[in-house]
Amino acid sequence: MNQSYDTSKKIRHLLAGIFTLSLGASLIWLILEATGMPLTPDLGYVMNSVGDTGSINVVTAILMDYRGFDTLGEASVIFTSVAVTAAILAEPVFTLERPILSIITRRAIAYLVPVFFMFPLYVITHGHLSPGGGFQGGVSLAVLVILTHVVFGHNLAMKKIPFSLLTMGEYWAALSFGILGLLGIFTGVGFLANLATGVPRGIPGQLLSGGLIPVLNLIVGIKVAAGLSSLYITLEGNPRRKK
């Protein structure tokens, strides 16, 4: 029985390999055929972005100004992911445990953590000037929360960064994103309008420029950081025992 099981497994892997090879070859042919067609990049965004938005990073200008509504949808996807994970796994509970790392490592990392926070804050606040933005800086902040959990143990980390703070951060960031979008409707322009609402533009290339774009970057950073770190905490915790 074991012999026939191994044989059927080999046959299955061979069939999967043949199927995958034919699929990959046809995909290569399809992509090369499709990209052989003439395709001109749309340079309107690159030409007009500094005049329209005041942000010199065109990707941030598209994400936060031209397609701000898509960013709101993406933020709601993160919100849905957190809600579904919290519904599948129960509320996290951590039992008492000893920290894994030694005391020297913990003290050294405790002195280094404020330095670690400089990088995500720089990335978030300079999102319209240099590569980066709300998403990248927010994920870096979430990784720092995971670092405190791994190094200092779950109980101390949950005491310093409580789970309710993360949930409230997610909730209020989503709400304030919508309220900032309503600012455009009250001034008669449209949902999530940026410079047309009358906010000052600033000089492009300086830190305070781009109208609402730095504020939106900050909100998206808080939202992504809170959402992804609460995903990790929900996955890491044990389920509450039934009494």
Partner: peptide, 19 residues
Amino acid sequence: ALALTAIVIGAGFLAIALS
């Protein structure tokens, strides 16, 4: 911008799959 959106959404759906 599309790829940036896709990366963050991919992290969300992988979290759901792992949970």
